[in-house]
């Protein structure tokens, strides 16, 4: 139990540091910026309570906000997916996700992980862009920008997850 919490915390710190130090500096075509940190909330243990999901969602978004100087847009978006996660998970899972070993590629299989991850990330990015330029973007450009960026973020997450899990399998 204690080991689990420690593992979760180090996973959290690792994801946050890589987001703040590495991924925030990637700017493809000058406007695609990968946000990989939502994967922490999305991949939290299926037994995590809904209050816990809200808490971790808010905290992870808040930390990114502090470093990106963006007020509260990231905390808004991650709290939203923390709240909606049980519903998002229900799209692909029948028993609230408890039938999977973990909520990543290895536990869910490629098709379910892609569906779950892409939809969740799109919700996250849409909320993010909505709050970022509320009065200044048209709804069309909002949808296009959030969709493109969500796909890009998901590809980065997929690569990172593949990298981590194959390394573990080799050991």
């Amino acid at each position: 139990m204690k080991n689990g919490i420690l593992k979760q915390l180090s996973w959290f710190v690792g994801i946050m540091l890589s987001q703040v130090l590495v991924f925030n500096n990637i700017e493809l075509f000058s406007y695609l910026n990968p946000y990989v940190y939502p994967i922490f909330v999305l991949s939290l243990n299926a037994k995590t309570s809904r209050g816990g999901l809200l808490f971790w969602g808010f905290i992870s978004g808040f930390i990114v906000d502090l470093f990106e100087d963006t007020g509260g847009i990231h905390s808004f978006a991650t709290t939203l997916i923390g709240f909606l996660r049980p519903r998002l998970l229900r799209i692909v899972a029948t028993q609230g996700g408890e039938e999977f070993d973990n909520l990543l590629l290895t536990g869910m299989g490629i098709r379910k992980f892609v569906t779950y991850g892409l939809i969740s990330l799109w919700v996250h990015h849409f909320a993010l862009y909505l709050l970022d330029g509320l009065s200044l973007r048209s709804i069309g450009s909002l949808i296009i920008a959030s969709s493109l960026n969500a796909v890009f973020s998901f590809l980065v997450i997929l690569l990172a997850v593949l990298f981590i899990t194959t390394k573990k399998a080799k050991r």
């Binding site: 808010f58 509260g72 847009i73 905390s75 808004f76 709050l131």
Partner: peptide, 19 residues
């Protein structure tokens, strides 16, 4: 849960507006 959610979202929006 719903209220906790709404409060956290309100905090986020507040932070955004203030920034």
């Amino acid at each position: 849960l719903l209220f906790a959610f709404l409060i956290l979202e309100a905090i986020s929006v507040g932070l955004t507006v203030r920034s």
